[in-house]
């Protein structure tokens, strides 16, 4: 039983590694926004909602990993 408990916590810890990809994704989205705005500042109004949408979409993938780890800790 102790072994199962240990495996549960190790699994919950490992599942947070997926946040790495979400971090890279968010960084790419905002880097592209800065790039676009610095090349053409007049496009800021149209680019910003798209960047926010991309931020939310890529952040959600990381939160799915977080949800798996919560499931492993509290629900399994």
């Amino acid at each position: 039983m102790q072994l199962v408990l240990a495996a549960k916590y190790i699994g919950a810890g490992i599942s947070t590694i997926g946040l790495l990809g979400a971090g890279i994704g968010i960084a790419i989205v905002f880097a592209a926004l800065i790039n676009g705005v610095s090349r053409n500042p007049s496009l800021r109004e149209t680019l910003f909602p798209m960047a926010i949408l991309g931020f939310a979409l890529s952040e959600a993938t990381g939160l799915f990993c977080l949800m798996i780890s919560f499931l492993l800790i509290y629900a399994v």
């Binding site: 939310a56 979409l57 952040e59 959600a60 939160l63 799915f64 977080l66 949800m67 919560f70």
Partner: peptide, 16 residues
Amino acid sequence: FSLGLRLTCNILAGHL
């Protein structure tokens, strides 16, 4: 799934 899971995971993770 993903439409609802996105919202609820964000709020859940934030409050936790």
